[in-house]
C-alpha cells in the first residue's frame, strides 16, 4: 500500500527529513570545531576535535537507527527516550568540547 494514500500529511517522511536537517546542523558544529582545533594546533585541540567528530558519528548513528525504525514499522512507533537523550547528550558534549577549545 502506498504510504501517501494512508498518510496525507507524510508524517514519517517529514520526521525523517527533520532528523536529516538536525544531523546537518550537528555536522556544521563539528566542522567549526575542527576549524577551531586546527587553528589552535595543540595536542588537546586535536584530541577534542577527534572527540567532536566521534560525537557527530554518534549522532549520525542515532538518526540512522531512528530513520530505519520510521521506515520499517507502520504506524511508526514513538521516539524512544533513550534515543532522544543520546542525541541531546551528543549536543551537550559538543558544547563542553567547544568550551574546552575556547577557554
Amino acid at each position: 500500500m502506498n504510504r501517501a494514500d494512508r498518510d496525507p500529511g507524510l508524517q514519517p517522511e517529514r520526521t525523517r527529513l527533520a532528523w536529516r536537517r538536525t544531523t546537518l546542523s550537528a555536522a556544521v558544529a563539528a566542522v567549526l570545531a575542527v576549524k577551531t582545533a586546527l587553528h589552535d594546533g595543540s595536542a588537546t585541540g586535536i584530541a577534542v576535535c577527534a572527540l567532536c567528530c566521534a560525537l557527530w558519528l554518534g549522532f549520525l548513528r542515532v538518526a540512522h537507527l531512528r530513520i530505519r525504525t520510521l521506515a520499517s514499522a507502520s504506524p511508526p512507533p514513538a521516539l524512544a527516550p533513550r534515543h532522544a537523550s543520546a542525541a541531546v547528550l551528543c549536543a551537550v558534549s559538543m558544547a563542553v568540547c567547544a568550551a574546552v577549545l575556547v577557554v
Binding site: G9, W19, S25, A26, A33, A78, L79, A87, A91, V102
Partner: peptide
Amino acid sequence: DYRFSLANERTFLAWLRTALALIGGGFA
C-alpha cells in the same frame, strides 16, 4: 495518534537544531 508523537518529535528536533546553532555560534 502516532502523528501527534511524530509532530512532538519534530518539535524536539527543531529545538535541538536551535541548540546546535547556538553551539556553532559559540565556535564562530
